[in-house]
Design a protein around this nucleic acid. Sequence first.
DNA 1: AAACGGTTTAACCAAATGGTTAACAAATAT
DNA 2: ATATTTGTTAACCATTTGGTTAAACCGTTT
Lengths: 206, 206
Amino acid sequence: MTTEEKILLAAKKSFFEKGYDGAKMQDIANDAGINKAMLHYYFRSKELLYEKVNMSFAKVIIPQINSLVDTELNIFQTIENFVEIYLEFLQKNPDLPSYFIGEMNRNHDMFFKVLSENATQPNFVAFAQKIYSAIEQKEIRPVNPIQLILNIISLCIFPYLAAPMLQYATQSDDTFIGEIIANRKKEITSFILHSLTNQNDVLYEN
Amino acid sequence: MTTEEKILLAAKKSFFEKGYDGAKMQDIANDAGINKAMLHYYFRSKELLYEKVNMSFAKVIIPQINSLVDTELNIFQTIENFVEIYLEFLQKNPDLPSYFIGEMNRNHDMFFKVLSENATQPNFVAFAQKIYSAIEQKEIRPVNPIQLILNIISLCIFPYLAAPMLQYATQSDDTFIGEIIANRKKEITSFILHSLTNQNDVLYEN
DNA sequence: AAACGGTTTAACCAAATGGTTAACAAATAT
DNA sequence: ATATTTGTTAACCATTTGGTTAAACCGTTT
């Protein structure tokens, strides 16, 4: 592994764990097993290093998230597919959501700078289209597509954000939380599809 | 307003905006319009100040969240009620979720220390019970109560966490996002109740 | 083997940061 | 009125932190 790679790896770890402010250059150098001056030799400043770190994994991650809906599947398969790929991705990157949320709120400008330089926009339009026509075909009940997409993503991501809280609230061990997360795919899909295929008016709704 | 109150207010603002590491004692003092030494005079250290700040609003907020299910309502009303109160609370404290998530993940130990010293556990058991009996009465389809509660909370909180992202993804203005959030109550309630009252097997589910 | 380029290090620097101190002002008690 | 406690300030201190520098190292070229 080259020095540059060692730095990026250690830096990513530090920024993930502690955020931009909490991460210290000396710690990153120690963790990479090199002299602190190397950080500046390769990346000039903490800010540039932070940018490079985010760039390097944004390039890998964003396309994965965005290429979810370009399929020939019907609405039900599309949703199932979306949930499955999303959750698989999250299982591989369980600490990504809290990093994203944290940095997005605390470090707004740089976050969106990095995002805009890498992001092919997610193909939500195609997804929304598919929802529209499914409603027209009466395959699903009428819903606002944006709200539906927001619902789906909420159900997928939130448990990863709230995992420590969930553990605290249920006062249980890791195993139990792991089980909940493992069952999530089935639960979410079922939850959504039940909701969408129920054409009846619902009691107590206003 | 006493000096102590001025400090707590400025400190809360700083910690909320920048997190523990990002917040600086000098900034807090400036913002409160007092000398930096006062911070230490009243609160001894940054860590103690942070703890006090969190304590002071945890005391107010936690009971609000926890006292949601002690009612004589049926399952549908309970869920509607829960969503309504939850969303109302969030509308009043829109930046609380990202602060919570951020500090919970970065400052794990202190977060739960503060929580455990204040928390009357939320009454999820009562909620789960109500879900159980509703299933027995065949008022709703069979679901895992914990998963259902997790779903409900996900749907309520996540949009607040993702608001900047949502704005970016939809490339729209504040008004549009505000509209989405405003429609959330109806959307979430409808989404959940449709899902729960659909007793049919669902297509494409495995 | 001497010169050269990129790489790496130890030592150093200035600014920022959390925290302290000693003197001073303003209440409060005697 | 005066002593005493409480509140407040400016100046100061030690450490941390991001960043720099000059010298050393090392493989390659000449």
